[in-house]
Design a protein around this nucleic acid. Structure first.
Lengths: 185, 185
DNA sequence: CCGCTCATGTAACTGGTTACATGATTTA
DNA sequence: TAAATCATGTAACCAGTTACATGAGCGG
């Protein structure tokens, strides 16, 4: 099989972690995740899982109740090996770069706004980031409560990044408070 | 015209900021950017710029030397208005969430590795993040040197996030040094 | 009994990418 | 004079999304 995509590896990881589970449960995992990078849409997950089965990474078994039957999936030996290979250094080169951040993307062009309007954008960003730090902390605690040690440690990263961004937006506001660079209308 | 994509807005911003410039110069902007989210491939930029011209957001004018003619683009009045609208709150809901981070994505499944192997991944992540903080700082200074005040402030965000992630990876290492949760082979 | 969750899929679309193609100009 | 950069484009592909479709079970 061709090189697995990042999403395919993540699905492999979810099935490894959550034991035998349905494709639907995988989708829910993405839907409940505070990250919005992958939506876990039906159109992506069902064909993806089928591909992993065909590639021998996942095994299907009948499950659920008689009333409500369901396909359960678990990782095969080769699936586990693939998962571990994915976790083994070196990380891909793109793994550590500036990710896509809509707030930062906009700040690059803050000069296109009138000085008064710049603060409106920063205020909005700050409010949302403040709220986001709460969400991130709650999510981490939820994982801790469930006993998912590594998940909680991963989620700590979201918390730290959220706080860093909050501090950053505040720094930007301080910095432009002095600056009154105007721009033609 | 339909709602502009994020990339289309960014291109609008680049043309606004860099004055009359070629599509090629726009591409270079993405290629030189330390972010890898958009590659600025020819296949995306040239058709995109053409679409913005058709939508009346950009105006084309002949330019370059006689020896080497080139199409120069500048933002129209309506292009500027669109750019400002993009910068005007409220930010879209997805603007403030956990972005895609390959390192964090992997840490969720760190438990699938043997305890000794976990440190190999963390070491790799730490080394790269350390290097990345340097890159980010240099890039920010470069923008400062060029007098791009807002660009430099935006780039400060990359720096802060890089440092936050570095601290996070170190925290994770401390935390799992004690933990010896093993997993079936 | 109405709406929500569980469960599984498919078809059309989209916003990019890679790879290919061309050719002039500048720099080492 | 070879290699890099400037400059512009196209065709095929790809990994996801949205929207649609179906149906059973379960809680208020």
């Amino acid at each position: 099989m061709r090189r697995l995509s990042e999403l395919e590896h993540v699905v492999l990881g979810i099935v490894w972690r959550d034991g035998p589970c349905t494709a639907y449960a995988i989708r829910r995992e993405f839907a409940n995740s505070p990250s919005s990078h992958w939506g876990g849409s039906a159109g992506s997950i069902y064909p993806l899982v089928e591909r992993l089965v065909e590639a021998g990474m996942l095994r299907a078994q009948a499950g659920g109740t008689e009333k409500r039957p369901a396909q359960l999936y678990r990782v095969s030996r080769s699936g586990k090996a693939t998962l571990r290979a994915w976790l083994t250094p070196p990380l891909p080169d793109e793994a550590v770069t500036a990710e896509f951040d809509p707030v930062r993307t906009r700040l690059f062009f803050l000069g296109a706004l009138l000085p008064e309007q710049r603060h409106l954008l920063l205020n909005d960003a700050e409010t949302r980031l403040h709220h986001w730090t709460d969400t991130a902390r709650q999510h981490r605690r939820e994982l801790e409560r469930k006993g998912d040690v590594f998940g909680a440690l991963a989620a700590r990263g979201v918390e730290r990044v959220a706080r860093a961004k909050l501090a950053w937006v505040r720094e930007v506001r301080e910095a432009i408070a002095a600056n009154t660079t105007t721009v033609e209308p």
